[in-house]
Design a protein around this nucleic acid. Structure first.
Lengths: 246, 246
DNA sequence: GGATTGATATGATGTGGATCAAAGAACATC
DNA sequence: GATGTTCTTTGATCCACATCATATCAATCC
């Protein structure tokens, strides 16, 4: 087994401002960099880990994108998250022997592997790293709360608009265009995540296009009216419309 | 301001097996016990903290029960969790200056306050405590994933059956009767949590009673057919029914 | 190039649960 | 113990979205 060196280091990674390095000084960063194992690229549909894989590491997305899914006892799949570069994957499994969800590449992607026992050891020495990990998990929980609200209180239109604007925002944070992007996520996966069917997603996308909110060309999405979309996703369109027309 | 001593210590608390103490030795436990501030009891509807309260502590439920809610921009409320004795509250706010949700007592309740900076300091010295906190957050995330599945894939009947069996199980863990319990949660709050209306909850409860799954007397619930309810909540009734009749 | 497969689009129909409405129960207040 | 007030139950109606059914389109494979 030849161990290849896919060497990009945290110090030169363009997503370090979103990832664990964000709060570390040069010294600490070097220690972190030392424990990270760069893995060879994964292809679309490749499984990074599945629900019976022993848990021993977290993974940071270096490039590409992933989905996290859980499988129900009656054999259905539930998409529980999408991961872009800089995101950490695996926080749902720290208390278990095996992973509690599967992570699947949505396109050709690369990850950094962070052995959890080493990370924990570093967390002892570096308070900032410890805080950072806790912060990530905390905002994960918080984001899930928002999602509960979305699924419980919002109708299809609002859910999809939230999804699109949120994705746009995440692309922006990563230095990608927030106006225009290629969906690596299928309509099926969007629907699964948002509790809607593929037909509803499809219909809404064509409707949004007619309403000049976006343009759609297959997987290529262009955001035309970000602010309006955001407002609508929060059920605030009426108020905003009034303000705009006043 | 007289500081009263509502002294029950972790060492003698009957829920320590579910709480942070679970993995600590006597020595560590004593250190933990030292940083905990026992607060005076809260009454029903009292606010432990709200979304503009500065975040500085986690809270452990010592007795009674709480709900966590977030408020949406258009003024609605979303219940995101219920907390029983031994549960920790506040994990969604570790990365923020203020709490990201409100915690409200559902009955007369007591809490232990855990100043976060002290807890973090202890986490440096005690690996087991650090692991324990991470584990709690992790299983919180994991449980939210299950909830996403529930809200996206399950119909009203299955959601409520999940809620009832899950609650029953949590009571059992705490040494309370798992067959019979008084709901401190209103039907409104259940509906809000599960993405259903109070009318649907009410109708289902009367139907479950007719089907001899439970008995309902106001807030008093008795579980009659736990296993069947659990199976039904997972959409497995058909398979199970077949097994039972074979 | 035709065949197979997977993703997407779009129309017709059905339904689970929301919404609306009203009446009991339970609970608190004086 | 009468009187609001909040919570729950039950019925009638409605609608957003699922489901079902086809059609279209793109990518991949002999």
């Amino acid at each position: 087994m030849t161990k290849m060196d896919f060497s990009i280091h945290c110090q030169s990674c363009s997503f370090s401002h979103l990832c664990l390095p964000v709060s570390l000084n040069d010294n600490e960063l070097e220690s972190l960099d030392d424990i990270i194992e760069r893995k060879k690229p994964l292809q679309k549909h490749d499984v990074l880990f599945s629900e019976d894989t022993p848990f021993k590491s977290l993974f940071a997305v270096r490039s590409g994108s992933f989905k996290s899914v859980i499988r129900t006892e009656d054999g259905q799949e539930q998409v529980v998250g999408f991961h872009l570069p800089g995101d950490l994957i695996g926080f749902d499994s720290l208390d278990a022997q095996t992973h509690q969800s599967s992570a699947i590449a949505l396109e050709t992607s690369m990850v950094c592997e962070l052995p959890y026992h080493m990370l924990d050891e570093m967390a002892e020495r570096f308070p900032k790293l410890r805080k950072q990990i806790m912060s990530f998990m905390s905002s994960d929980i918080q984001q899930k709360h928002e999602l509960m609200m979305l699924l419980n209180k919002r109708k299809a239109e609002e859910r999809l608009l939230y999804f699109l604007t949120h994705l746009s925002q995440r692309y922006a944070e990563r230095g990608f265009s927030e106006k225009q992007f290629n969906l690596t996520i299928t309509r099926n996966e969007i629907g699964n995540y948002l509790g809607l069917t593929i037909e509803t997603i499809s219909r809404l996308l064509t409707r949004f296009q007619k309403e000049k909110l976006i343009t759609v060309d297959g997987k290529l999405i262009e955001i035309l009216e970000y602010d309006l979309m955001l407002a609508k996703s929060k059920g605030l369109h009426h108020e905003l419309m009034q303000q705009l027309t006043c």
